[in-house]
Simulated assay, not measured.
Amino acid sequence: MGSNITTLAIGYGLPVHLVDVDRPTLDQARARIARQLRHAHLLGALPADQPAGELVTSTSVAGAEGATAVLEAVTELPDVKRKVLAEVAAVVPPGTPLVSNTSGIPIDELAEELPCPEQLVGTHFMNPTYLIKMVELVRGPRTSDAAVAAVESLLGALDRTPVVVRDDPGFVTSRLLHPMINQAARIVERGTATVDAVDTLMQGCLGHPTGPLRTADLIGLDNLVDSLAALYERTGEQSCRPCDLLLEKVASGDLGRKTGQGFYDYGEVLS
C-alpha cells in the first residue's frame, strides 16, 4: 500500500519522501511505482497533463522532518505501527498530521504512546489506490478537528473522496468484507463449491464486482489473515477467526497476486 499511495500522490504532482527498511526494498518500490504510474495513465486514472511529483527514497525517518503530513503504511501489526509512528512523531513539528493506513486496527490504540495523540488520523485506502476514489477516514476519540480537516484537504488534493467513520475494530469496510471472504474460503474448504463457483455466484447473483476470493488475492492473503486475526482478538467473533485454508495458503507462501499464486494461479508475480 505504501507504493500504491506513493503512486497516487506523485501522479497528482505531490512530492513524496518514501521510507522503507533497506535499499533493495526501496529499489523494488521505485520500480513498482513506475509500473503503476504507467498502468494508471493507460487507464486515464491520473491527470495526463500533471508532471509527476518528485520521489525521494531513504531508510531513515529523519526525512519526514519537513513533511506537511506523514502517512504510515507498514505491516498490519500494532506494535510495529506504534513504533514507527513514535519514531516519526519525534522528528516532525507539533501539529503535523500523522496518518496510519490500516484495514482495521483501532486508531486510539496506535495513539497511546504518541506525545500528541490528537495528531493521529486513520485512513483505509483501497487497492489499487489510483483506481478506487473512496477512502475511509477514521477519527479516533482523541483526534482533533484540525487533523481531520488537514487529511480531508490532502485527500481532496489527490481527488479522493473521504468518508469519515468512528474508531472501531475493522471500521466499516473490513468489518463487513473480511469476514465475508473468510466465510467464502470456508465454503471452498468444506468442498461445497470451487473457488471459481463461489466468485461467479457472488458476481452474478449478488453483484460483487470481482468475487470475494479474487478480491482476497488482490488484498494479499497474509494481509487478510493479519486483519482477521486483529478483528478476532478484539471482537471474539468466530466469523473473524482465520479459517484453516487461509492459514495453510499463507504458510505455504501462496499470498495472492503479489506472489503469483493464491486462490488463483497468475502464472507470474504481479505487483
Rank of each mutant, 00 (worst) to 15 (best):
S3G: 02
A9D: 03
I10P: 03
I10W: 01
Y12E: 04
V16S: 10
T25A: 14
L26T: 00
D27R: 06
R30V: 15
R32N: 15
I33H: 12
A34Q: 12
R35S: 15
Q36Y: 10
Q36E: 14
H41T: 03
H41Q: 09
L42E: 15
P47S: 06
P47C: 09
A48G: 00
E54Y: 01
V56A: 15
V61P: 00
A67H: 10
V70F: 03
E76A: 04
V80E: 13
E87R: 00
E87W: 05
A89S: 12
T96D: 10
S100W: 03
N101M: 03
T102M: 06
I107Q: 04
D108C: 10
A111V: 11
L114Q: 08
C116P: 01
E118M: 03
Q119P: 01
G122F: 05
G122T: 04
H124Q: 08
T129M: 08
T129A: 15
M134I: 00
R139L: 00
P141K: 11
S144A: 08
D145I: 02
V151A: 08
L154V: 03
L158R: 09
D159K: 13
R175Q: 08
L176H: 08
L177A: 12
H178Y: 14
N182W: 07
Q183S: 07
A185Y: 03
R190F: 02
G191R: 06
T194V: 01
H208P: 07
L218A: 13
I219F: 11
D222E: 11
D222W: 04
D226F: 07
G236I: 08
E237M: 01
C243Y: 07
L245C: 11
L246K: 03
L247A: 07
A251G: 11
G253N: 01
G253T: 00
G256Q: 07
T259K: 07
G260Q: 10
G260Y: 11
Y266A: 04
G267H: 00
S271W: 14
